[in-house]
């Protein structure tokens, strides 16, 4: 269970550009929840994920993971139980290293700073078997450098690396936004498959309202650093895109006109 307790985050405090990104944000994520997060640009969706992952320190508030206060834990220590996939396909893998070397770093987590061999026959076999279940044809390209892969393949690889050692929480920050529709579909169904099979608690930020409604068991809408809508169960499954757009409209009034383009 993850609890965000009254989180405040202000960027550029005490300057003309002061920007309150998270405003007294509280959220309780139950074990096994798959939450999709929507909201216009600047609503604080990515900042929320980054605060949970430890990229940005919070100004006030607490973050609890399974009852343990992780508010002041550095990013790399939280990585022991938090898996992440980023929007930019370049960010999640080490491009000049091979597929098997990348997988090895994820597989050995959290003991990936030891003097044990990174790869051996047994590990290669595990990776090969693992990749066989994923329709990317990567199982025979273990020694290919990751920089030679396409964006979609890299994103899938990042997803595999983030979930290889089952994390307590998986953070997906618009991880299909940079992909073409078909590849995005592939990565999304892979996401659902992995999350469901391993029952991983997940928070996924997306700009795609269709995905937001279809995927997961809970839908959150953020606005100005707060959660303005929290749907689950039947409420969520009966939600439609026009009604969501309508809600955006209510929230933002005139300003919405420019956002319709972003959300369509």
């Amino acid at each position: 269970m993850v609890i965000l307790d009254h989180i405040q985050k202000i960027f550029y405090r005490n300057t003309p550009n002061e920007n309150q990104v998270l405003n007294n944000l509280s959220l309780k994520v139950e074990d096994g929840d798959f939450i999709t997060v929507i909201g216009s640009n600047g609503a604080g969706k990515s900042t929320m994920l980054n605060v949970v992952a430890g990229v940005h320190p919070v100004d006030s508030g607490r973050i609890l993971l399974d009852g343990i206060d992780i508010t002041h834990l550095p990013e790399f220590k939280r990585a022991a139980f938090i898996g992440r996939v980023f929007q930019d396909p370049m960010l999640g893998t080490s491009p000049s290293m091979t597929i098997e070397e990348n997988l090895s770093m994820a597989y050995a987590r959290p003991n990936n700073m030891t003097l044990c061999w990174g790869l051996d026959f047994q590990r290669r076999k595990i990776f090969k078997d693992y990749l066989k279940n994923i329709p990317l044809g990567l199982e025979n390209r273990l020694s290919t450098k990751v920089k030679l892969l396409s964006g979609g393949q890299r994103q899938a690889l990042t997803l595999i690396m983030a979930t290889m050692k089952k994390p307590k929480l998986l953070l997906l920050d618009e991880h299909t936004a940079a992909l073409d529709p078909k590849t995005a579909q592939m990565v999304n169904s892979l996401t659902e498959e992995i999350v469901q099979k391993n029952n991983i608690t997940t928070i996924m930020v997306t700009h795609n309202l269709e995905h937001a409604i279809k995927m997961g068991n809970r839908l959150i809408m953020m606005h100005k650093g707060q959660i303005v809508m929290d749907l689950s169960g039947e409420e969520k499954s009966t939600m439609t895109i026009p009604r969501l757009l309508n809600k955006f409209e209510q929230l933002q009034g005139e300003k919405f006109a420019e956002d319709r383009v972003m959300l369509a």
Partner: peptide, 18 residues
């Protein structure tokens, strides 16, 4: 591996707990 990844993509290896 961790050292090579640190030079190659520090964001990635940090998110792998290094």
């Amino acid at each position: 591996f961790a050292l090579r990844a640190t030079g190659d993509n520090p964001q990635m290896i940090r998110s792998q707990g290094v």
